[in-house]
Design a protein around this nucleic acid. Sequence first.
DNA 1: ATGCATTGGGAATGCGCTTTCCCACCTCAT
DNA 2: ATGAGGTGGGAAAGCGCATTCCCAATGCAT
Lengths: 350, 350
Amino acid sequence: MTASTLSEVAKLAGVSPATASRVLNGSARTPAPEIAERVRQAADTLGYIANAQAQALAKSSTGLIGLIVHDIADPYFSAIAQGVQAAARQERRMVLLATTNGTPAEEKEAVAAFAARRAESIVIAGSRSTRSEDARANTELAAELDRYCRNGGRVGVVGQAILGVAETDNYRTIAVPNEQLARDLARDLARTHKGPFVIVAGPEGLTTSDERVTGFQRGLSDAGQPAADVVHVPFNRNGGFDAGIELAWRIKASGQPVPEPRLCIFATNDVMAIGVAAALRDQGLRIPHDASLAGFDDIQWLRDFRPALSTVSLPLEEIGRLATIATLSDDGGPAAVAGSVTLRRSTGSS
Amino acid sequence: MTASTLSEVAKLAGVSPATASRVLNGSARTPAPEIAERVRQAADTLGYIANAQAQALAKSSTGLIGLIVHDIADPYFSAIAQGVQAAARQERRMVLLATTNGTPAEEKEAVAAFAARRAESIVIAGSRSTRSEDARANTELAAELDRYCRNGGRVGVVGQAILGVAETDNYRTIAVPNEQLARDLARDLARTHKGPFVIVAGPEGLTTSDERVTGFQRGLSDAGQPAADVVHVPFNRNGGFDAGIELAWRIKASGQPVPEPRLCIFATNDVMAIGVAAALRDQGLRIPHDASLAGFDDIQWLRDFRPALSTVSLPLEEIGRLATIATLSDDGGPAAVAGSVTLRRSTGSS
DNA sequence: ATGCATTGGGAATGCGCTTTCCCACCTCAT
DNA sequence: ATGAGGTGGGAAAGCGCATTCCCAATGCAT
């Protein structure tokens, strides 16, 4: 990387570096038009591009935003990333990306890396974990974030707060009413489903999934229904698929030819729901004929899936945008986001 | 951002900054164990995190990789991003993300921004455009890239080369045999489909789509079939949907109740194909009963879609990885990637 | 014509770090 | 005991830029 420097430009233009800096990178003081033009010419012929590193060092402000997600290929995260990116562009920042597979240990590493790069703010998306094997890493993550915040960094986290981080102005969380929405969903479903409910959830200790489970159970209870069975599998499509295979078995064993009342399956996110659907289909079961199915998130790419998936709509891109803006502005904008139950054909609606 | 500095650590440890630097950030010279330990202690109590900006300035190497995509929320791009991210992590680099909506003008901006940040390499994904209104921006993009390369930056581009950039060692392109694969697909389809073919393509001038169209036509010709009609729509789900509505009309007008031979639709990417499928379904048509449908890319999230989509599989993540590695290593690793025709139920196969 | 305020360019300093160069000290062979 | 060679820490010079401070030149009022 041997690009030309400011002083080369200055020399060519016959001015001091100070003057060149003033004309090329907006300053309060504006040199004379004629000089400015000469500098610009020089910069142009040399193909000068300011060294952002050096500028950052001098001004101590980098224009960098760090984004941490579990998996950028997951549509849930890529939708959020889209929002972050949009907000960043609007605020003339660049985004630094890190993926962590959801492990707090890697999240901590990412925070440290962002801190080293002096990112002005960090947006963290993806469920927290309360599993005991993650406890230690979680503590370290919290410590790292805490240090980052104390040094003036700002962080916005999507969903749940990270335990152990001092709640300062530098630390915002965009609340996602997982529990409430799952509760709403359960109540809506209970209106038309008397049958047994079962929840296909992520690993125990994955906060997002846990919240949705809790909310759903509460909703069932509100409706006077008994609690649902919960099966825990990996929080992805294949986890859903595996659970689906087992559920298909249960369904087939429970009644012939169509068990009544039909099983109603709630998967704690859409991609798991898709996995469940694929498994049921593989086993010759039809949705919603043989079982009802609902998901959570309302992933855009799944809208053309059939039967159309009942789910809870979340403004994913907006969430990314809000989290980003929250870390950039001082006013406490909306720190929460709204979602809505969206019933479709997979639960026999519409 | 008021983090503690190296010299603060040094002072606390009672050594010179040089020594502190040597122990904290790997150097050829290793200070005495006892001193090293003292420095490490000091760093720890101060919560020292090296300023990567300053390091970059001093060493002139940033450890940054720039990634340019059209739209990070598009599964095609997020799969590639996944690969880039994986390779970057493996090579201990961070990735800087930019989305451009596919416009060369924004791509140019992104390249300039990356150049300013002194990214060591840039990976560009997403179809080129040969549309006349993009000509000017393309030239500017090429100039920007050229300058970047001359300054020692390395770039890897997925798919087609960007015209006007000098082909140096710093500039690699990962070839995707779009044309050949589309040709293979056409030939395979022609084996079972005698019916009229129609291609739902992206805007004219979008190289990726154009290549796939050309290849498909060539394949039809190989099989002794007349050329397919081509309809141009936006290169996304909604473009496909719109085309699908029109095609449904055509199909219904052409015969009752089931037109024979059935129309065979080739959409130049999977998400368009999904749009087509949704439209046909909306219009009461069934796939493959009333028409066959094939896409391109084999997007992971669409595998559970039914009818299963015939398509051309591309190792998207691998492509991202290769493009990244190519910009990092000097040996000319594989500069091309293989794909394969994958026939599924949407064309009546299996 | 003189003094003062104002304008605008340049010199110099520092951002936080790496690295070269220097030097004091020590070891060992003679 | 003396000099060569080696070891390891520190001083200092940048890396490329922003910015403060200084100063010459200019404008204006008196």
